[in-house]
């Protein structure tokens, strides 16, 4: 598996990361290096092995569940403390036009 410049540009756009065109070739090379390294995993024979998800093999103990109780919230000031902009109790962002 490998990526080309167009794919890298697209991924960057989706992730809202700006990459100047001049920086693209190096990024393509680096990403392909990483992909090639991960490719090594293909050498492992996984015939008959159940796929894993979230680090636990299929059939392993589940996600821990909590009881349905209100234990959090009521901290609007703390939530808003780091907001770049706010209006009263709201976060304020540049107007989103649909």
């Amino acid at each position: 598996m490998s990526v080309d410049a167009a794919t890298v540009k697209r991924i960057a756009t989706l992730a809202r990361i700006r990459i100047e065109d001049a920086a693209l070739p190096r990024m393509v090379e680096e990403l392909n290096g990483i992909l090639a390294w991960v490719e090594m995993l293909r050498e492992v024979d996984t015939q008959g092995v159940e796929p894993m998800a979230g680090g636990a093999p299929t059939g392993q103990p589940s996600l821990r569940m909590r009881e349905d109780e209100v234990t959090d919230g009521g901290i609007a000031e703390a939530i808003l403390a780091n907001a770049p902009d706010r209006e009263g109790p709201y976060f304020a962002v540049p107007k989103v036009v649909e």
């Binding site: 209100v70 234990t71 919230g73 009521g74 609007a76 703390a78 939530i79 808003l80 109790p89």
Partner: peptide, 23 residues
Amino acid sequence: SRSKLFSGAATAFGAEPNSQVSF
């Protein structure tokens, strides 16, 4: 439900803005 899917903040409708929010 009383609280949210992955956090312990309340779900009630019509509360003060941002008052039912966890980190």
